[in-house]
Amino acid sequence: MTAPRTVLLTGAAGGVGTLMRALLPPYGYRLRLFDQRPVDGEPDAITAELADTEALREAMDGVDAIVHLAGISLEAPFEKILRANIEGTYRLYEAARAAGVRRVVFASSNHAVGFTPRPADGSGAIPVGTPRRPDTYYGLSKGFGEDLASLYWDLHGIETVSVRIGSCCPEPTSVRMLSIWLSPADCARLLDAALTAPGVGHTVVYGSSANTRLWWDLSTARALGYTPRDDSEPYAAELIAAQGALDPGNPAHARLGGSFCTDPPRWPH
Protein backbone atom coordinates (compact mmCIF):
# COMPACT_ATOMS: atom_id res chain seq x y z
CA MET A 1 0.00 0.00 0.00
CA THR A 2 1.29 3.46 -0.92
CA ALA A 3 1.92 5.51 2.21
CA PRO A 4 -1.21 7.60 2.83
CA ARG A 5 -0.68 11.31 2.87
CA THR A 6 -3.96 12.74 4.19
CA VAL A 7 -5.13 11.10 7.41
CA LEU A 8 -8.33 11.86 9.27
CA LEU A 9 -7.56 11.98 12.99
CA THR A 10 -10.70 11.65 15.10
CA GLY A 11 -10.53 12.51 18.78
CA ALA A 12 -7.94 15.12 17.89
CA ALA A 13 -8.57 17.17 21.05
CA GLY A 14 -8.11 14.19 23.38
CA GLY A 15 -5.01 13.12 25.24
CA VAL A 16 -3.58 10.74 22.66
CA GLY A 17 -4.91 12.83 19.79
CA THR A 18 -3.11 15.91 21.09
CA LEU A 19 0.16 13.98 21.27
CA MET A 20 -0.27 12.57 17.77
CA ARG A 21 -1.05 15.96 16.26
CA ALA A 22 2.58 16.85 16.89
CA LEU A 23 4.20 13.45 16.30
CA LEU A 24 2.53 12.10 13.14
CA PRO A 25 3.24 14.94 10.65
CA PRO A 26 7.03 14.30 10.67
CA TYR A 27 6.21 10.89 9.14
CA GLY A 28 4.80 12.72 6.12
CA TYR A 29 1.09 12.87 6.97
CA ARG A 30 -1.27 15.79 6.52
CA LEU A 31 -3.80 15.55 9.31
CA ARG A 32 -7.45 16.46 9.04
CA LEU A 33 -8.68 16.95 12.59
CA PHE A 34 -12.09 15.93 13.93
CA ASP A 35 -13.47 16.17 17.46
CA GLN A 36 -16.70 17.05 19.22
CA ARG A 37 -14.72 19.73 21.07
CA PRO A 38 -12.79 22.59 19.44
CA VAL A 39 -9.14 21.75 18.87
CA ASP A 40 -6.95 24.44 20.40
CA GLY A 41 -4.94 26.36 17.83
CA GLU A 42 -6.53 24.50 14.89
CA PRO A 43 -9.22 26.69 13.32
CA ASP A 44 -9.65 24.30 10.38
CA ALA A 45 -10.51 21.33 12.58
CA ILE A 46 -13.98 19.89 12.13
CA THR A 47 -15.99 20.25 15.34
CA ALA A 48 -18.82 17.74 15.33
CA GLU A 49 -20.07 14.51 16.86
CA LEU A 50 -19.77 11.18 15.09
CA ALA A 51 -23.57 11.19 14.84
CA ASP A 52 -23.31 14.13 12.42
CA THR A 53 -23.47 12.33 9.07
CA GLU A 54 -22.85 15.45 7.00
CA ALA A 55 -19.78 16.41 9.05
CA LEU A 56 -18.38 12.90 8.66
CA ARG A 57 -18.98 13.03 4.91
CA GLU A 58 -17.08 16.32 4.74
CA ALA A 59 -14.29 14.91 6.90
CA MET A 60 -13.82 11.89 4.62
CA ASP A 61 -13.45 13.89 1.40
CA GLY A 62 -10.03 13.21 -0.10
CA VAL A 63 -8.82 11.19 2.88
CA ASP A 64 -6.39 8.30 2.36
CA ALA A 65 -6.77 6.70 5.80
CA ILE A 66 -8.26 7.21 9.25
CA VAL A 67 -6.83 7.06 12.75
CA HIS A 68 -9.92 6.64 14.92
CA LEU A 69 -9.25 7.80 18.49
CA ALA A 70 -12.64 9.41 19.18
CA GLY A 71 -14.96 8.13 21.86
CA ILE A 72 -15.29 7.81 25.61
CA SER A 73 -12.01 6.50 27.04
CA LEU A 74 -13.21 5.52 30.54
CA GLU A 75 -16.15 3.60 31.96
CA ALA A 76 -19.52 5.36 31.66
CA PRO A 77 -23.21 4.45 31.68
CA PHE A 78 -24.05 2.07 28.87
CA GLU A 79 -26.24 4.61 27.06
CA LYS A 80 -23.29 7.00 26.71
CA ILE A 81 -20.91 4.22 25.64
CA LEU A 82 -23.51 3.04 23.11
CA ARG A 83 -23.82 6.46 21.49
CA ALA A 84 -20.17 7.47 21.42
CA ASN A 85 -18.21 4.24 21.08
CA ILE A 86 -20.56 1.75 19.45
CA GLU A 87 -22.89 3.80 17.26
CA GLY A 88 -20.14 6.36 16.65
CA THR A 89 -17.69 3.76 15.39
CA TYR A 90 -20.37 2.23 13.16
CA ARG A 91 -21.11 5.65 11.66
CA LEU A 92 -17.40 6.22 11.05
CA TYR A 93 -17.06 2.94 9.14
CA GLU A 94 -20.19 3.65 7.12
CA ALA A 95 -18.80 7.05 6.14
CA ALA A 96 -15.47 5.46 5.23
CA ARG A 97 -17.23 2.89 3.07
CA ALA A 98 -19.26 5.55 1.27
CA ALA A 99 -16.13 7.65 0.66
CA GLY A 100 -14.00 4.75 -0.53
CA VAL A 101 -11.48 4.99 2.32
CA ARG A 102 -9.66 1.68 2.56
CA ARG A 103 -7.50 1.86 5.70
CA VAL A 104 -8.48 2.52 9.31
CA VAL A 105 -6.40 2.36 12.46
CA PHE A 106 -8.83 1.76 15.31
CA ALA A 107 -7.93 2.64 18.89
CA SER A 108 -9.00 -0.48 20.73
CA SER A 109 -7.90 -1.05 24.31
CA ASN A 110 -6.37 -3.54 26.70
CA HIS A 111 -9.73 -3.35 28.47
CA ALA A 112 -11.22 -5.54 25.73
CA VAL A 113 -9.37 -8.35 27.53
CA GLY A 114 -9.26 -6.66 30.92
CA PHE A 115 -10.37 -9.63 33.04
CA THR A 116 -7.53 -11.76 31.66
CA PRO A 117 -5.12 -12.64 34.50
CA ARG A 118 -1.81 -10.87 34.14
CA PRO A 119 1.33 -13.01 33.80
CA ALA A 120 2.68 -13.47 37.30
CA ASP A 121 6.25 -13.56 36.03
CA GLY A 122 6.00 -10.54 33.72
CA SER A 123 6.76 -12.82 30.78
CA GLY A 124 4.86 -10.84 28.16
CA ALA A 125 3.15 -14.07 27.14
CA ILE A 126 -0.48 -12.99 26.59
CA PRO A 127 -1.21 -13.38 22.87
CA VAL A 128 -3.55 -11.25 20.78
CA GLY A 129 -5.68 -14.35 20.30
CA THR A 130 -6.50 -14.71 23.98
CA PRO A 131 -10.30 -14.80 24.43
CA ARG A 132 -11.79 -11.38 24.92
CA ARG A 133 -12.83 -10.67 28.51
CA PRO A 134 -14.01 -7.05 28.69
CA ASP A 135 -13.85 -5.48 32.11
CA THR A 136 -16.37 -2.66 31.56
CA TYR A 137 -18.94 -1.35 29.09
CA TYR A 138 -15.98 0.61 27.72
CA GLY A 139 -14.00 -2.59 27.16
CA LEU A 140 -17.10 -4.18 25.64
CA SER A 141 -17.33 -1.32 23.13
CA LYS A 142 -13.74 -1.93 22.07
CA GLY A 143 -14.49 -5.58 21.42
CA PHE A 144 -17.43 -4.44 19.30
CA GLY A 145 -15.13 -2.11 17.37
CA GLU A 146 -12.72 -4.95 16.62
CA ASP A 147 -15.58 -7.13 15.35
CA LEU A 148 -17.01 -4.27 13.30
CA ALA A 149 -13.59 -3.77 11.71
CA SER A 150 -13.47 -7.48 10.87
CA LEU A 151 -16.95 -7.30 9.32
CA TYR A 152 -16.09 -4.28 7.16
CA TRP A 153 -12.96 -6.03 5.94
CA ASP A 154 -14.91 -9.12 4.93
CA LEU A 155 -17.89 -7.26 3.45
CA HIS A 156 -16.34 -4.11 2.05
CA GLY A 157 -12.56 -4.58 1.83
CA ILE A 158 -11.74 -1.88 4.37
CA GLU A 159 -8.51 -2.86 6.10
CA THR A 160 -8.08 -2.11 9.80
CA VAL A 161 -5.37 -2.44 12.38
CA SER A 162 -7.03 -2.54 15.80
CA VAL A 163 -4.52 -1.37 18.40
CA ARG A 164 -5.17 -2.47 21.98
CA ILE A 165 -3.54 0.54 23.57
CA GLY A 166 -2.13 0.20 27.08
CA SER A 167 -1.42 3.61 28.61
CA CYS A 168 -0.13 6.26 26.20
CA CYS A 169 1.28 9.17 28.17
CA PRO A 170 4.63 10.96 28.50
CA GLU A 171 5.72 8.68 31.35
CA PRO A 172 4.18 5.87 33.45
CA THR A 173 2.52 7.01 36.66
CA SER A 174 1.83 3.68 38.35
CA VAL A 175 3.52 0.33 38.87
CA ARG A 176 0.89 -1.31 36.64
CA MET A 177 1.77 1.09 33.84
CA LEU A 178 5.34 -0.20 33.83
CA SER A 179 3.97 -3.24 31.97
CA ILE A 180 1.57 -1.54 29.55
CA TRP A 181 3.13 1.88 28.89
CA LEU A 182 3.16 3.13 25.30
CA SER A 183 5.42 6.14 24.96
CA PRO A 184 4.09 8.88 22.67
CA ALA A 185 7.05 8.39 20.32
CA ASP A 186 6.40 4.65 20.11
CA CYS A 187 2.69 5.33 19.60
CA ALA A 188 3.53 7.41 16.53
CA ARG A 189 5.84 4.64 15.29
CA LEU A 190 3.08 2.08 15.74
CA LEU A 191 0.45 4.18 14.02
CA ASP A 192 2.79 4.82 11.10
CA ALA A 193 3.43 1.08 10.77
CA ALA A 194 -0.31 0.40 10.94
CA LEU A 195 -1.01 2.99 8.26
CA THR A 196 1.63 1.74 5.82
CA ALA A 197 1.98 -2.03 6.25
CA PRO A 198 0.65 -3.91 3.21
CA GLY A 199 -2.11 -6.48 3.29
CA VAL A 200 -3.24 -6.15 6.89
CA GLY A 201 -6.86 -7.27 6.32
CA HIS A 202 -8.03 -7.01 9.87
CA THR A 203 -5.12 -7.27 12.28
CA VAL A 204 -5.25 -6.88 16.06
CA VAL A 205 -2.11 -5.77 17.88
CA TYR A 206 -1.18 -4.75 21.40
CA GLY A 207 0.06 -1.19 21.75
CA SER A 208 2.94 -0.75 24.15
CA SER A 209 6.61 0.07 24.23
CA ALA A 210 9.37 -2.52 24.60
CA ASN A 211 8.91 -2.62 28.35
CA THR A 212 11.08 -4.91 30.45
CA ARG A 213 7.95 -5.86 32.44
CA LEU A 214 5.73 -6.30 29.36
CA TRP A 215 2.63 -8.47 29.88
CA TRP A 216 1.63 -9.22 26.31
CA ASP A 217 2.98 -10.41 22.99
CA LEU A 218 3.96 -7.68 20.52
CA SER A 219 4.67 -10.04 17.63
CA THR A 220 1.68 -8.99 15.51
CA ALA A 221 2.66 -5.34 15.93
CA ARG A 222 6.27 -6.10 15.04
CA ALA A 223 5.06 -7.97 11.95
CA LEU A 224 3.66 -4.67 10.68
CA GLY A 225 7.14 -3.14 10.88
CA TYR A 226 6.76 -1.61 14.34
CA THR A 227 10.05 -1.34 16.21
CA PRO A 228 9.49 0.09 19.69
CA ARG A 229 12.44 1.99 21.12
CA ASP A 230 11.32 2.96 24.60
CA ASP A 231 11.14 1.05 27.90
CA SER A 232 9.40 1.99 31.15
CA GLU A 233 12.16 0.47 33.28
CA PRO A 234 13.96 3.77 34.04
CA TYR A 235 10.82 4.79 35.98
CA ALA A 236 10.48 1.50 37.88
CA ALA A 237 12.57 2.09 40.98
CA GLU A 238 10.91 5.39 41.87
CA LEU A 239 7.38 4.10 41.26
CA ILE A 240 7.89 0.88 43.22
CA ALA A 241 9.46 2.79 46.11
CA ALA A 242 6.46 5.11 46.22
CA GLN A 243 3.64 2.63 45.55
CA GLY A 244 5.01 -0.82 46.37
CA ALA A 245 5.25 -3.85 44.13
CA LEU A 246 2.18 -5.39 42.51
CA ASP A 247 0.30 -7.66 44.90
CA PRO A 248 -1.28 -10.72 43.22
CA GLY A 249 -3.83 -10.80 46.03
CA ASN A 250 -5.10 -7.34 45.08
CA PRO A 251 -7.82 -7.59 42.41
CA ALA A 252 -6.61 -4.34 40.84
CA HIS A 253 -3.19 -5.94 40.35
CA ALA A 254 -4.29 -9.44 39.33
CA ARG A 255 -5.96 -8.64 36.01
CA LEU A 256 -4.87 -6.80 32.90
CA GLY A 257 -7.60 -4.21 33.36
CA GLY A 258 -6.38 -3.09 36.77
CA SER A 259 -8.89 -1.00 38.72
CA PHE A 260 -11.41 -1.31 35.87
CA CYS A 261 -12.02 -4.84 37.22
CA THR A 262 -12.63 -3.84 40.83
CA ASP A 263 -15.56 -1.45 41.00
CA PRO A 264 -18.59 -3.05 42.74
CA PRO A 265 -20.49 -5.11 41.79
CA ARG A 266 -17.88 -6.46 39.37
CA TRP A 267 -15.60 -7.91 42.07
CA PRO A 268 -15.98 -10.28 43.77
CA HIS A 269 -18.72 -12.30 42.11
Rank of each mutant, 00 (worst) to 15 (best):
A3W: 01
L9G: 05
A13D: 07
G14Y: 09
T18L: 02
L19A: 15
L19K: 10
A22Q: 15
P25F: 00
L31Y: 12
L33H: 11
F34M: 08
F34W: 07
G41M: 10
E42D: 08
D44S: 11
I46N: 05
I46M: 02
T47I: 07
A48R: 07
E49L: 09
E58Q: 13
D61W: 00
I66A: 02
V67F: 15
L69Y: 07
A70F: 06
A70L: 05
E75K: 02
A76G: 04
E79P: 01
L82N: 08
I86D: 03
E87A: 07
E87Y: 03
G88F: 02
G88I: 04
Y90V: 10
Y90M: 06
Y93M: 14
E94I: 03
A96S: 07
R97G: 05
G100A: 06
G100W: 00
G100C: 06
V101G: 04
R103F: 03
V104R: 00
V105C: 08
A107N: 10
S108H: 08
H111I: 01
H111F: 11
A112T: 13
V113G: 10
F115H: 09
T116N: 08
G122S: 14
G124R: 10
P127R: 15
P131A: 14
R133I: 03
P134A: 13
P134W: 12
P134I: 09
T136E: 13
Y137P: 04
Y138L: 08
E146P: 00
S150T: 14
W153A: 11
D154E: 15
L155H: 10
H156K: 11
G157S: 07
R164G: 03
G166A: 01
G166F: 03
P170H: 05
P172H: 06
T173I: 05
S174K: 07
M177Y: 03
L178W: 10
L178R: 08
S179M: 01
S179L: 01
I180D: 01
S183I: 02
P184R: 05
P184F: 01
D186A: 04
A188P: 02
A194T: 02
L195V: 02
P198L: 04
G201N: 10
V204W: 01
S209D: 00
T212A: 14
W216S: 13
W216C: 13
D217Y: 06
L218Q: 12
T220P: 12
G225N: 06
Y226A: 06
Y226F: 15
T227D: 12
R229Q: 15
A236Q: 13
A237L: 15
L239G: 10
L239S: 13
I240E: 15
A242G: 14
G244L: 13
H253T: 07
L256T: 14
D263C: 00
D263P: 00
P264I: 07
P264W: 11
R266A: 10
